[in-house]
Design a protein around this nucleic acid. Structure first.
Lengths: 128, 128
DNA sequence: CCCATAAATGATAATGATTATCATTTACAA
DNA sequence: TTGTAAATGATAATCATTATCATTTATGGG
């Protein structure tokens, strides 16, 4: 009999992901939960993030900074990656319909749009 | 006196990149040039790809497959990543103007749009 | 043409995020 | 309560990329 069992750690990881808009990395999740779950292993975090992604509970965002970011908001939306402070921010922007632009026979299941630049905070602070 | 010197390997890497539309990885470039440059080292490929990117001669494309892809076509265009055959294809699609959609104070230098799905060939072949 | 010197290379070790392994713990149905 | 298979935690392994360093090479000045 195969199935998924309940696990306290898994619940905690998903709950944490759903409580933030910062699109955390596995490492961030790990250290954030360490306080409440001192015995938590980093492998459990990676394992469950991958599982959530496969189950469609979260989406993985790759902004090319070397880390996988995870977002519990699986609604269609786009992101802004500040190349100065490294944050990944949500954008409030309507979904754009591109499918008619794809070559004949190509079928897109989803698409990802990421803006790179400096956020308002970093622009003010004249970060290099 | 600091500057850039001429190098046969560097020329070959850039020439190869400019001769293809397949958005190759460092590894692909390395093995492709091995025939003509048996002594070529993989580090030289990585080094020069990074250099080209910094110089703005090529753009790096991250589709989340674990590899950095490089594209000598630095014009504004978008990509389609076939999750079946793993290819990265160019899309002929006009540049979309999003800047007015960004939050106050945010300045985007560039953006990246990637579609994920199956290309026409893989759809025909009923790849899983 | 010949050096001096600093850039570039090639071999290889190191890095670092992610994944695999495996013994132990835990959930849960019978 | 108990048998079991899933889940965990510790840790080794993986693998793309980067750093190190001795050697080679390009290039400008004499």
């Amino acid at each position: 009999m195969s199935g998924t069992r309940h696990s306290t750690q898994r619940d905690a990881i998903l709950t944490l992901l759903r409580s933030t808009k910062t699109h955390p990395t596995a490492e961030w999740v790990y250290f954030s939960l360490k306080e409440d779950f001192p015995s938590l292993g980093i492998a459990t975090v990676y394992r469950n993030l991958k599982l959530f992604e496969k189950q469609g509970l979260v989406q993985r965002i790759d902004v090319g900074d070397g880390y996988d970011h995870y977002d519990a908001d699986i609604s269609q939306h786009y992101h802004f990656h500040c190349t100065s402070c490294r944050q990944v921010l949500d954008l409030d922007m309507p979904k754009l319909e591109f499918d008619s632009c794809l070559p004949e026979g190509h079928i897109a299941e989803h698409h990802q749009l990421v803006f790179f630049g400096k956020c308002c905070k970093c622009n003010e602070e004249q970060c290099s």
